Amino acid sequence: MSTLKSVPEYGASLFRIVVGFLIACHGASTLFGFPVSGHTSSPLAWPGGVAAALQFGFGVLVLLGLGTRTSAVMVSGTMAYAYFSVHQEKALLPMQNGGEPAALFSWAFLMIAIVGPGPLAVDALRAKARVRVTAAGEPAAAV
């Protein structure tokens, strides 16, 4: 039974990786027309282009598990803004206003920010390296 204790941690990592990948693809398709071709937007165009740049950049960081909590909060806020500024005007419920993806992404990234990156993350590797250096008697600032 002791081996099953790590399953939720790895599940959190896999969830973070998949959701980070999905939002990065969403931003990339708006910015570059890849992986889905269509209308592209400049990263300086407000609000769509800026949102796409944030989705792509922070999505990649969440995918890698680098600065995970901060990046996840940024994407969560971006998606909450999208829901309330674009979708909420059309109707009250997400089923009516087409805002289901924005609402789901917002809550998913908030959950990632709360739970953390899990063991399969650059943040976790950096923390392990910091602990090894500290355990070896060297100052932690040397990392």
Rank of each mutant, 00 (worst) to 15 (best):
A108Q: 04
V73N: 07
S76R: 03
G98W: 03
F109Y: 02
F84W: 13
K90R: 14
S76W: 00
A80D: 00
F84A: 00
Q88Y: 14
T78Q: 05
L93K: 08
S85L: 12
V75K: 03
Y83P: 00
H87I: 11
M95G: 14
A108W: 07
M74Q: 09
L93V: 06
M95T: 15
A102H: 05
M95Y: 14
N97E: 10
S85K: 10
G98E: 01
A102F: 06
G99S: 10
V73F: 12
A82N: 00
Y83G: 04
Q96A: 15
A91M: 05
A108D: 02
S85C: 07
S85M: 13
K90T: 15
V75I: 15
P101I: 12
A103N: 03
T78H: 04
G98D: 08
F105Y: 15
E100F: 11
Q96R: 11
G77N: 05
E89C: 07
A91V: 08
Y81A: 13
Q88G: 06
N97P: 09
L92K: 12
L92W: 14
A72D: 05
F105W: 13
A91W: 07
W107R: 11
A82D: 04
A102M: 10
F84N: 08
M74W: 12
L104W: 05
A108F: 15
T78C: 12
N97T: 12
Q88F: 15
S85P: 00
M95F: 14
G77Y: 02
S85W: 07
L92A: 15
L92S: 12
M79Y: 04
M95I: 13
T78N: 13
A91D: 11
A72R: 07
